[in-house]
Design a protein around this nucleic acid. Structure first.
Lengths: 203, 203
DNA sequence: GTCTATATTGTGATAGAC
DNA sequence: GTCTATCACAATATAGAC
């Protein structure tokens, strides 16, 4: 038990999550985690047999938080416009609460893409199904979307990118003013929805 | 000299570039580079005193390839529409030729954002100037852009994201068919330009 | 459960022979 | 310029005392 009344096991998980998210898998050492958790290395191995297992558990947990939304949102019979708004709101809000996730996921993505793809499949989401749902909507709604896959990548990219590139954008066009960038990100919920909807509006 | 007639120094640089781009800084070891270059570790240190220096040189080189465009393109007096097309074409084409760059840059971004910001500044590019140029265009062209900063992030994000997330997207919606994904990326030049222009068209 | 001590291997880096 | 040998230290991981 720690000062805050949580179990050591949970404490390790919390600290490790934070360190892994800041520095990535290979940028993190067990020593670092032990130090920040106020324990020693052996205890890490006592609870989670190896660095890889510890990381794997954390990654799956973090990632799973964010996946189910996509499926739920697109498997309704609302209009595509409503679905887009719901998706953008939900994801940008989630990233604002947890801004390290995009970078964290992308780092794992480049070193271990299969791991990620497996997690998505295991979550029950079928990306091809989402694309089919978009195609269906097009028949009813007469929107300017040639390729639903392109549109999906556009939508996700617009949500993810400002968080993945935050350290750079914040420095370059916000003079490293964190508050100003937070405001910018908040405004993005509206910006991205409107941007997407304008782009696919016929005329 | 190696079999291909290039100097050892250059050979090291080529191999190191590839390995660093695949695995990131902390995911790469000097041993790995030495092995793939067919030499031993000491020789790496002989030419480039430390791992950090070797990486720094490679990163600056790779990154510099891509920066100058942004400035040149936006510092002309063409219409905004033409600038957007030129930018999107130039960047997506560059990424197709060198698809690892977005991931590589983003990895460095998360561990060493200042390094990146410095390189951009050193290159003579002033992002705030680009934003001003966009604002200027808006006075003449009456486009649907409320915040030029948001628009700039949209534009860059749409170009970068499909490459940064390639390992995932390719698996999930292209059944890991590399050819199909290449085609998708090629089509993106047109897709992104049109998407951006539709979004900012008034009406 | 938690610690100290230690095994084992890997890592960046240097010295010195050729 | 290139190699072998080696250093100093950091890494993951385990053994065993308490």
């Amino acid at each position: 038990m720690t000062a805050k009344g949580i179990s050591t096991e949970e404490n390790i998980l919390n600290v490790a999550r934070e360190v892994f998210m800041r520095n990535g898998y290979s940028g993190t050492t067990m020593q670092q985690i032990a130090d920040e958790a106020g324990i020693n290395k052996s205890l890490l191995h006592y609870y989670y047999r190896s660095k890889e297992k510890l990381f794997g558990q954390i990654f799956a947990e973090v990632f799973s938080q964010f996946i189910p939304e996509l499926g739920k949102i697109f498997m309704t019979d609302k209009s595509l416009e409503e679905k887009i708004r719901a998706f953008v709101d939900s994801y940008i809000e989630g990233f604002i609460r947890n801004p390290l996730i995009p970078i964290f996921v992308m780092q794992e993505l480049s070193t271990n893409p299969q791991h990620l793809a497996d997690l998505i499949r295991k979550s029950g989401i079928d990306p091809e199904m989402v694309i089919k749902m978009i195609s269906e909507s097009l028949k009813k709604e007469d929107l300017n979307i040639q390729d639903p896959r392109q549109f999906m990548v556009n939508m996700i990219g617009l949500c993810v990118f400002p968080f993945a590139a935050q350290p750079l954008i914040q420095r370059l066009i916000f003079n490293n003013d964190e508050k100003a960038y937070s405001k910018f990100l908040l405004e993005r919920k509206h910006e991205v929805s409107e941007f997407l909807l304008n782009a696919i509006r016929k005329g």
